[in-house]
Amino acid sequence: MMTMKLRKATVASAAALVLALTAAGCGSDGGGSSGASGSASAGGKTITVGIKFDQPGIGLKTPDGKYTGLDVDVATYVAQQLGYAPGDIQWKEAKSADRETLLQRGDVDFIAASYSITPARSEKVDFAGPYLLAHQDVLIRADDNSITTPTDLNSKKLCSVTGSTSAQNVKTKIAPNAQLQEYGGYSECLTGLENKVIDALTTDNTILAGYASQAQFKDKFKLGGFKMSNENYGIGVQKGSELKAKINTALEKMIADGSWAAAVQKNLGPAGYQPDSTPQIGVIVS
């Protein structure tokens, strides 16, 4: 009987030890985990940021696994002001159609992905910023002097990506006789532009400058300098998140200390892009 009792005690002790170790392990994982919305404000060890993976000069994941672009630099600066080193950032692809869902589900802490602030989007998420005022523009060949105003796009072959409203906006509002050409991606439009299959490519001037700043396109293209729309780029956060105010403070500091201007010049300057104004945080230009 004594042996039986000892065995039962030993089993019970072992079970208690396993439970204690499991609880300790779970506590350790919970303290260091992040990636969901709220982890940044809760002081997690990592922060998850949504960016574009396919826009040179804006947000690009390179073949060697690095991340480059203006949005990457802005997001890195903001994260550092929130207390996270560059190595603490987990980058997540934020395609245009997925951005609100990523924030609402808590898959990311914030998104910096050429994310224009609009009334419709502001009903679903909150925005810090804006940190950049972009405009719809055109990219043309550097030696093309036939397109000097938006109306010169009449009878020209105008390219944009499938599903984009940029080219349709030009045809509807500015140049009704433009010949629309829809390609699968901006790279295809650039190839067509370089080979004179098309005459102009249209989307945000920042996106155009990012592509044109790539080494293989050096001195081949130029921006038209047209301001066919105002696109206020903001940083998206979950509705009601306390991060909005903190990110605004970080952006104000980035502008004040010169880091913002340096990031713009580094990523978009090679294509001749110059911001027409320094952004005012909290002021939306209509």
Rank of each mutant, 00 (worst) to 15 (best):
Ala128Arg: 06
Lys66Phe: 06
Leu139Trp: 12
Ala178Gln: 03
Leu60Ser: 14
Leu193Tyr: 05
Ile117Asp: 06
Pro63Ala: 07
Lys92Gly: 00
Gly163Ala: 03
Pro176Arg: 08
Leu133Phe: 05
Asp143Phe: 02
Gly69His: 04
Ala134Cys: 03
Lys95Arg: 05
Ala79Pro: 06
Tyr183Glu: 14
Asn169Met: 15
Lys196Thr: 04
Thr165Arg: 15
Val108Thr: 00
Ala134His: 02
Val78His: 04
Tyr131Asp: 04
Gln136Lys: 13
Ala97Gln: 14
Ala167Gly: 15
Glu123Gln: 15
Lys61Ile: 08
Val161Tyr: 11
Asp152Thr: 07
Ala175His: 07
Ile117Phe: 10
Val108Trp: 00
Leu190Ser: 10
Thr191Pro: 02
Val74Pro: 01
Gln90Tyr: 00
Pro176Met: 09
Tyr67Leu: 08
Phe110Asp: 00
Ser96Arg: 13
Lys196Pro: 01
Asp137Asn: 10
Ser122Leu: 11
Ala97Met: 11
Glu194His: 12
Gly87Ile: 00
Thr148Phe: 12
Gln179Tyr: 03
Thr118Trp: 10
Asn177Gly: 04
Tyr67Ser: 05
Val125Pro: 00
Gln90Gly: 02
Ala120Cys: 04
Arg99Ser: 03
Leu60Asn: 15
Thr151Asp: 15
Ser166Trp: 12
His135Gln: 05
Thr62Asn: 15
Asp98Ile: 05
Arg121Ala: 14
Gly163Pro: 05
Val138Ser: 09
Pro130Trp: 01
Gln168His: 13
Ala128Ser: 11
Ala94Trp: 00
Leu132Asp: 08
Thr62Cys: 14
Ala175Asn: 07
Arg141Ser: 05
Val74Cys: 01
Ile147Glu: 04
Thr68Met: 14
Gln181Ser: 15
Ile89Tyr: 02
Lys95His: 03
Ala142Pro: 06
Leu180Arg: 13
Ile58Val: 10
Leu102Pro: 00
Thr191Leu: 12
Ile111Asp: 03
Gln179Pro: 01
Gly192Tyr: 12
Asp64Ser: 15
Val108Ala: 01
Asp71Met: 04
